Amino acid sequence: MAQGVLEIDRISKRYGEVVALRDMTFEVRAGELFGFVGSNGAGKTTAMRIALGVLAADSGEVRWNGAPITFETRRRIGYMPEERGLYPKMKVLEQLVYLAELHGLTTNDAHRSAENWIARLGVRDRRNDEVQKLSLGNQQRVQLAAALVHEPDVLVLDEPFSGLDPVAVDVMSQVLREKASAGVPVVFSSHQLDLVERLCDRIGIVRSGAMVACGTVDELRAGGETRLVVDAPGAANGWAADVPGVRVVETRGTRTTLELTADADDQAVLHAALATGPVREFSRQRPSLTELFRNVVTEEETA
């Protein structure tokens, strides 16, 4: 497979009365890190399994470069399941070589690639150990090596950072950035939203089997409420209460965080603050991905 776009087009899946996916649609572009976030049971894993052909969709289509995914193109996808997908009694190196050969590599190329990823991911000294004897963090490193060992053209990773220490998180982040820089589309799910925000080019927020928001962090922020942080040492509590369209979010010492409606006038806020004396800070606050996620999910639940 050459570099291209992975498309998930209107995928739906039901289990009896339970709707797992509802017209799930998104794409992962060449060289892009796409973060797939949602609450437990939102449908992320189901979507990934359908993309890999592990599950069949009731309707919709998965495409690579505009053509439906086939068995041959699936061999060029690197998949990392959330649950351990390794043979517990098989040795690390032996297992990686075996998996690389299953994906079509020669024995020599499989050994070369396995040794490379074992070293890169920091488990060289455990290469001849059985997987079941490794710590959960090291098992996760080997699981990532298994997804990378055949040098895939697409990466689909389900909770790849789960159980990793900060050093391993940094190593894995660097690997994913390098793969994206080489033109590989990378999609991964994670509950570590600060990491997703820092790492991803675009983010999709999933709820109840549907994509409810998708875009860059800046694009997602653009749809949220405007917040201002005002540091007015001479202001008493309630100084902004009479400004139209303004709600006080919190006050910490002399700093007040305000939420403004779309028609609120930030200059009116500044005028009210200056009326209390000197203003040491007057700045816009960018909502974090965690706040955006919480707002989107809450809106959907109350809709």
Score class of each variant (00 low, 15 high):
Ala235Gly: 13
Val212Trp: 05
Asp218Gly: 00
Asp218Val: 03
Glu225Tyr: 10
Asp218Thr: 06
Gly224Glu: 12
Ala236Gly: 15
Val230Thr: 08
Ala222Lys: 06
Asn237Arg: 15
Thr226Val: 13
Met211Arg: 02
Asp218Trp: 06
Ala235Pro: 11
Ala235Arg: 10
Asn237Leu: 14
Val230Arg: 09
Gly215Gln: 01
Trp239Ser: 07
Glu219Ala: 08
Ala235Ile: 11
Ala210Ile: 02
Asp231Val: 15
Asp231Ala: 13
Val217Glu: 00
Val230Met: 10
Gly223Met: 09
Gly224Pro: 01
Val230Gly: 08
Arg221Gln: 11
Gly238Pro: 11
Gly224Met: 14
Thr226Tyr: 06
Cys214Val: 12
Asn237Thr: 12
Gly215Trp: 03
Gly209Asn: 01
Gly223Leu: 10
Asp218Asn: 05
Trp239Arg: 11
Gly224Lys: 03
Ala213Glu: 02
Arg227Cys: 07
Met211Pro: 00
Gly224Thr: 06
Gly238Asp: 10
Thr226Trp: 08
Val212Tyr: 05
Gly224Ala: 14
Ala210Leu: 04
Asn237Pro: 13
Ala232Tyr: 14
Pro233Gln: 09
Pro233Tyr: 14
Val229His: 05
Pro233Gly: 08
Trp239Tyr: 14
Val217Ala: 12
Arg227Ala: 08
Met211Ala: 04
Ala222Met: 07
Leu228Thr: 05
Gly238Lys: 12
Val230Lys: 09
Asp218Leu: 04
Cys214Lys: 02
Arg221Tyr: 06
Ala222Leu: 08
Leu228Ser: 06
Val217Trp: 10
Asp218Ala: 15
Glu225Cys: 05
Val229Ser: 11
Gly238Met: 09
Gly215Tyr: 02
Thr226Asn: 05
Cys214Glu: 07
Arg221Cys: 05
Gly223Phe: 14
Leu228Gly: 05
Met211Asp: 00
Val217Asn: 01
Ala213Asp: 03
Met211Cys: 04
Arg227Ser: 11
Ala210Trp: 06
Val212Met: 03
Ala236Lys: 15
Ala236Pro: 05
Gly215Ile: 01
Leu220His: 04
Thr216Ile: 02
Trp239Leu: 12
Gly238Val: 12
Met211Asn: 00
Gly234Pro: 10
Thr216Lys: 02
Val229Met: 12
Leu228Tyr: 08
Gly209Pro: 01
Ala210Gly: 08
